[in-house]
Design a protein around this nucleic acid. Structure first.
Length: 544
DNA sequence: AAGATGACAGCCCAAGTCAG
DNA sequence: CTGACTTGGGCTGTCATCTT
């Protein structure tokens, strides 16, 4: 069958004009056509029609279904969410996970790091290599951007990906290709047949400011800071937009490779440079702890004169043999450390403390702040974590507090400016009852959190559990997303767990065209469609 | 063997950005 | 407007290892 024959825009009647009979027939044809293209696209990787044409098919199907809900087929394409081609970016699995780094804020943390390494290599033949005054450390500025992985095969760039959760990222190849500092072909020689080079995509401050100045002149909204701007730029669907944004790339590491190409981090960086990649010029090979700390101090001083933002220094054990033996932890390698600079701080007034109730009933206090700019963004909330944390800081409503962005990202309350405490401010009294259901909120011995004892009597807990369940399992029933559940609660539609269950049952029953449904039938249907075990489902919802 | 300590995984937090 | 994705710190509960 020829592709054109499947295209719907030949003899396509406006949906409003369709008679029921015609609609029924067309839905049947669309179901077959879409399934056909899904198969070609996914199984055979040989699509017959363009993505745009395919989208048109699905849109038409959806439009007809919207007008004739009673005609929705059991095998409707709109139900097979998994079969749809990725609307935006396709996923990329990192064969070697992209981990983050362990952080150090104080010199002592750095010393602890080296102590751990020394402790790891206790064998006499290793000891000399990791001696405090001799251990080789590659120290590099930690660029404040976002990490990316570039896959080169036979020296040609074939894939660019974001880090994602470290295991699965997004395919941003088209956008990556627009970076001038990312070569399409590796130069020189000696590169492995396949190598995945990792580094940081960033934007220089001057370029960012110039870009914003132009936007401001044009009356457009300006961006908040270079890092988020860079992140947004890489997620553009249209690479020509990315191309206009002055992004740059520094290579600092690698993932999967077909062959070894260096024996040390320093050597690897030198290779990258030979191959035409951009490597940060301020990196330095240090010997011993004293040298790395001196390097950190130097860089903290020259930080402001660099053309881009950095938030610290990365130390890597230079010898790859030692690196391999140290290995990885779940979140970070054992052979590297990020030594951060002190975060930028600001003062503002804490207007109130808001208590939220989590899915386990945990009462979490959040500070509501007078908006203040810290490190390029406007901060108005910050977590206070728990009861003890408030007490430790003796934070009172009305207090002026010092705010910083942990890791230059997450707002955090560092402390209180006692001199500016308003007269009459009283120590904060943590509620002993759940603000939602009024049940007793208690602390188990040894626990930091105070918890609402209402269980599923508590609407907040019930709602949060359902939200968690819905988002975690992509239990995507139209009209029952995470936000909808919150809204139902606000509207008073959910007041107790039974309500949630009924609501869920109603929504599903309506879509499935069932009439009255029993709990078991509902659960069985969900079980079948989503491969969620009955136990898990009941647990997650807390249905008795 | 029991208790204490440490490491670790998993989750949540807040803000900016883009896609749909 | 909602959802997904980026950034990193820190709490929580569990499990492994160390100490008494």
């Amino acid at each position: 069958m020829r592709a054109q024959a499947m295209a719907p825009h030949i003899a396509e009647r406006p949906v409003e004009l369709l008679a029921e009979e015609e609609a029924k027939g067309e839905l049947a044809r669309l179901a077959i056509a879409i399934a056909h293209h899904d198969e070609l696209y996914h199984a055979k990787d040989a699509p017959e029609i363009s993505d745009a044409d395919y989208d048109r098919l699905r849109q038409r199907n959806a439009a007809i279904e919207a007008r004739f809900p009673e005609l929705i087929r059991a095998d409707s394409p709109s139900r097979r969410v998994g079969a749809a081609p990725a609307a935006g970016f396709s996923k990329v699995t990192h064969r070697v996970p992209m981990l983050s780094l362990e952080n150090a804020f104080e010199e002592q943390d750095v010393r602890d790091f080296f102590a751990t390494v020394r402790n790891f290599f206790r064998r006499p033949e290793d000891l000399a290599r990791v001696a405090e005054d001799a251990i080789e450390i590659m120290a590099e500025p930690k660029i404040d951007g976002l990490s990316a992985a570039l896959r080169y095969e036979d020296g040609r760039l074939v894939l660019g990906a974001t880090r994602g959760d470290g295991v699965t990222g997004e395919d941003i190849t088209a956008n990556i290709r627009t970076l001038e500092t990312v070569p399409e072909r590796l130069a020189g020689h000696g590169w492995p047949d396949m190598i995945e080079i990792r580094g940081e995509v960033y934007m220089e401050r001057a370029a960012f400011l110039a870009f914003n100045a132009e936007r401001a002149a044009a009356g457009e909204q300006v961006f908040a800071n270079p890092r988020n701007f860079a992140a947004g730029s890489l997620r553009q669907l249209d690479p020509s937009v990315t191309a206009k944004r002055p992004l740059k790339f520094f290579a600092y590491g690698w993932g999967e490779t077909s062959a070894g190409f260096a024996r040390s981090q320093a050597e690897a960086l030198a290779r990258f440079r030979d191959w035409g990649l951009s490597v940060n010029p301020h990196s330095r090979l240090c010997h011993g702890i004293a040298e790395v700390i001196a390097y950190h101090r130097d860089l903290a001083e020259t930080r402001a004169s660099l053309p881009y933002d950095i938030d610290g220094v990365v130390y890597k054990i230079n010898d790859l043999d030692l690196q391999n033996r140290l290995g990885m932890r779940s979140r970070a390698p054992r052979w590297a450390l990020a030594h951060k600079f002190a975060a930028e701080q600001a003062q503002t007034v804490m207007r109130d403390i808001m208590i939220t109730v989590g899915r386990q009933g945990t009462l979490t206090p959040t500070a509501m702040l007078e908006p203040v700019t810290v490190g390029g963004v406007v901060v108005q909330r910050a977590t206070l974590h728990n009861e003890d944390e408030i007490q430790r800081k003796d934070a009172r409503i009305g207090d002026t507090v010092i705010v910083q962005r942990a890791g230059d990202v997450i707002p955090q309350i560092v402390g209180v400016v006692l001199e500016r405490r308003p007269p009459g401010a009283e120590p904060y009294k943590f509620p002993e009852k759940c603000p939602v259901c009024d049940s007793l909120a208690v602390r188990e011995p040894g626990m930091a959190a105070r918890r609402c004892t209402g269980g599923l009597i508590c609407a907040a807990q019930a709602v949060e559990r359902l939200k968690h369940f819905v988002s975690r399992d992509n239990f995507d029933i139209e009209g029952l997303g995470e936000k909808h559940i919150g809204a139902f609660w606000q509207d008073g539609l959910i007041r107790q767990p039974g309500d949630i269950f009924r609501l869920k049952a109603d929504v599903i029953a309506e879509r499935e065209g069932w009439g009255e449904v029993s709990a078991s039938k509902l659960i069985a249907a969900i079980d079948e469609r989503r491969r969620i075990s009955l136990d898990r489902f009941i647990n997650a919802l807390g249905i008795p």
